[in-house]
Design a protein around this nucleic acid. Structure first.
Lengths: 122, 122
DNA sequence: GCGATCTGGTCTATGTTCGAGACCGATGAC
DNA sequence: GTCATCGGTCTCGAACATAGACCAGATCGC
């Protein structure tokens, strides 16, 4: 399977994981998805909960996630405006394998930090 | 568990998955790891197999992966120089949950592309 | 001897992306 | 009148990525 990660350049069908990671593998996408996991959120709510994301990146990230079908955006014509974001079925299903990765990250965080400390000591 | 992704900003211990994704979630790291999965590779071999990575980014990516303990680097004092890279145990174990994600990506690629086409049609 | 070639990088110039923060328009609270 | 709320967009400088030139040191063909 990993072969497909490597050999996709010559194939018509672009490599799935490269494609997926190009989108969600950035600084913010995963964080936004995780923040949406518990339920519906408004724009400024996401902004506050994530904390260190700029409006611009939040906006851009949400739009990309929406385009890729991970989140749904619902605008209520009110003043002040109310815009709600929620995970789609695709978005939810994505979080399943992601949870595995998070579990791995938590289990191996210490090892990584140890390696990092060892590297800088060297 | 996903809560920890969101609430880590206030915690002393940095959020594991944010930390991990900051490192391997970039354009190239996963690709390098996948290319190293079958076994030992030399620098220029990685360059050729990946194809569209610049030497600079390959160099930088490998150094970071080495610092984090995902790959091991072995220099042979020969001329021309020979430098070999291989996955460490940590690197191998990381590929396990990653495989899940790749599987998901392959299974849902069509859905994502459909969403994307739908979005641009709109 | 003389140049070309191989290797694993680094350096530089250029282009792309990112974050901080100003700004917007309509409305309600004071 | 004035300020805050909301979901963004715009602009600016800074950070980062990319392509490609360049390097040393030995070996090869001639």
């Amino acid at each position: 399977m990993l072969d497909e990660v490597r050999t996709a350049k010559s194939v018509d069908q672009p490599c799935a994981i490269r494609d997926v990671l190009d989108r969600i593998g950035d600084q913010w996408s995963l964080l936004v998805l995780a923040t949406l996991a518990p339920g519906v959120r408004r724009f400024s709510q996401l902004e506050r909960e994530i904390g260190d994301i700029s409006k611009q990146m939040l906006s851009k990230t949400l739009r990309r996630l929406e385009q890729d079908g991970f989140v749904a955006r619902e605008v209520h014509a009110e003043v002040p405006p109310r815009v709600e974001y929620r995970l789609t079925a695709l978005g939810c299903s994505f979080l399943e394998p992601m949870r595995e990765l998070i579990r791995w990250a938590e289990a191996n965080q210490a090892a990584i930090q140890a390696a990092r400390r060892g590297a800088e000591a060297r």
